[in-house]
Structures are given as C-alpha cells and as structure tokens.
C-alpha cells in the first residue's frame, strides 16, 4: 500500500516556485528520506503533504485519503515534527508530554505510561521537572520529537529532526525510529546528513530547486551515480609522470607527500591494472594504493551540482555555453 502519493505537486510563493511539479510515492512500512540543499523545497513539501498549506496545483493522497478533501481525517492519522521548534515555554518537560497526549485524546493511563517510556528513550529523565523555557536548544528538540510519539499514528513526518542533537542523542533517535518502523510505522524524513539517510532510509529522493532529481534506494543511487571509484596511487619520487601516463584516462597529480596520482573511473579494476602496468614498465615503484568507493555524500554533491548546472543552463539559455 502507498502511504503517500503525490502527483504533479507544485507550490509557488509569488514568483518563487518552491515545489515544482513533483511526484512522490512512499510505501507503507518504509523509511523515506528526502534530501536536498537549503531552500530546495523539503519543508514546503512536508507542509503540503501534512495539509498545513494548500498546493498551487497537483494532488496528494495520504493513507488512501485525498488530502484536499479530508485534511482533518488525514491529520488525525499522521504525526508531524516540523523543522521549526515548538514548545510550551511554561510547562515542564513531563507536563508538556502529558498535555500533548491529552490534546491527542490519549487516555490518561496510556499517557502516563508513554511519558515514562519516552522520558527514558529520549534521555530526558534528568530534565523532566524543568520548564521548556529553561532547557537547551538540543534538549528542546528532543522533547519536541519525543512528544510526537505520545499519540498513535500510521505515518510520521520528520523535518530535520536531528538538527542540534549530539551524536549519541542522534543515534538514539535513529534507532528509536527504526524500532517504531519495525512495529509498522511509516516515516517521511528530511535531512542534510547523508550518513543518517544511508543508515536509516529504505528509499531516498533528492530534491533541488523544487524538482526531484533522483529517487532510489541508497544502494541503487550509489550504483547509478557512484560506480565511479576513486583510485589513489602513491609513488615515491616527484617524477614527471605526464608522458608515461598518456592513455590511462583522466587523472590528477599532486605532490604534497611524495607524488599522488588520483584517478576517477567507472571501471576501476581495468583502470587499476592499466596504471600499474604502465608504472611497472617504467620502473616506478608504487608505495601505496587505495580504491575508495564514492560516498553517498559525493553522490549528493554530484547530483545536486549537475542539476544546478542544468538549472543555470535553462535560465541562461541565450548566453553561449563555454563547454
């Protein structure tokens, strides 16, 4: 079953197109990662999907319901942690969790149990009696995320939930989310942190300038965009290798610590064999050698850069390209 299905979804603010005709589908029980640089349209997409704002055009279906026709029904079935902080300044941490559960009509016994569970899971025991006004920004973020688990839901939207969290809190949150997904929850998650997406997500969409520029599993994304590996060959002396390396492909040479030849290739094995042969034939000793798979982060940067170039190209279609 699809939990989220958006078709040709667009949102404009004046002449800014924050979301530009995107299609999305998220399967039930999955963690869907939504990645993109600042201003790409992630938050706007979340606000659209959670019925907080209305689309300029396009359709949204959440958990089988038309979001435009049944916004309240949709909201009753979802949880949302917005990017923007939200808290009741005068309530203590435990009271604000408890009251949030009340607002969601959770019965009082369940509320009490969940408050204890969440205070423990989000490491809030020590500050449970402190007012939200008197705790740190990262602690407040933890309370905000924890609070959303006070109520039952089928689908949870998290807009950069880990911003401001220290590494252990971050890992704790990701693992808590994983646990909830095992129990049947579906997650729509935005982040800038690629390792986080890789650790957590079953599927990833990358958005830039309001358009989705790639969607796939983390592994497939790596396959598609990251088959290119980076080969580094350290050789001893600072030799001029330009002449002998002709024909091995595109490479860079740097001379910081000895001489390093860096080569990017989609067919890394072939390229490696070739370069070793050439070096051997010229009696150049290899001191060190490494082949590094491209990280999701590099893929992200590559994909976003490509799309920026295309975007710029479209805008500047009159001027001549220098390529």
């Amino acid at each position: 079953m699809l939990c989220v299905e958006a078709k040709s979804l667009s949102k404009s603010y004046g002449n800014v197109t924050a979301v530009d005709s995107i299609d999305l589908s998220v399967e039930s029980g999955k963690i869907f990662g939504f990645l993109g640089p600042n201003g790409a349209g992630k938050t706007t997409t979340i606000k659209l999907l959670t019925t907080l704002i209305l689309p300029t055009s396009g359709t949204i279906n959440i958990l089988g319901m038309d979001a435009a026709r049944y916004p309240l029904k949709v909201r009753k079935k979802i949880g949302v942690v917005l990017q923007q902080p939200s808290y009741e300044p005068n309530l203590t941490v435990e009271r604000s969790l408890e009251k949030y559960g009340m607002m969601w009509d959770v019965d009082s016994k369940t509320r009490r149990d969940r408050v204890e569970e969440l205070l423990a899971a989000f490491d809030l025991q020590e500050i449970r009696k402190k007012k939200n006004d008197d705790i740190s920004i990262g602690q407040r973020r933890r309370v905000q995320v924890a609070r959303e688990f006070m109520h039952d839901m089928d689908l949870l939207f998290l807009d950069e939930p880990t911003v401001g969290l220290d590494p252990s809190a971050r890992r704790g949150l990701l693992d808590y989310i994983k646990g909830k997904v095992r129990d049947g929850l579906t997650i729509f998650f935005t982040t800038h942190i690629l390792e986080e997406a890789e650790y957590l997500c079953d599927e990833i969409a990358i958005i830039n300038h309001g358009k989705i520029i790639a969607v796939d599993t983390p592994d497939e994304l790596k396959n598609k965009f990251g088959r290119e590996k980076t080969i580094k060959v350290h050789i001893g002396k600072a030799e001029d290798v330009g002449a002998i390396l002709q024909g091995v492909g595109k490479y860079e040479v740097s001379h910081d610590e000895g001489t390093v030849i860096t080569l990017h290739s989609a067919d890394s094995e072939q390229a490696l064999v070739k370069i070793l042969q050439v070096l051997n034939a010229n009696n150049i000793a290899v001191e060190d050698l490494s082949v590094v798979p491209t990280s999701l982060e590099e893929i992200f940067l590559t994909v976003v850069k490509n799309s920026n170039n295309n975007f710029g190209g479209k805008l500047a279609s009159n001027s001549s390209s220098d390529k």
Binding site: T50, T51, L52, L72, R75, K76, V80, L82, Q84, P85, S86, Y87, E88, P89, M103, W104, D105
Partner: peptide
Amino acid sequence: WNDRRHGMFEQILVGPFT
C-alpha cells in the same frame, strides 16, 4: 501571541484540530 512565537500555532494546526 505565544503560540505563534513558540511554534505551537502550526503544531496545533497540523494536529487533529481545525
């Protein structure tokens, strides 16, 4: 005023309320 300043206005409107 406080709900707008502290984000609770949006949070309530994205919850089970109109």
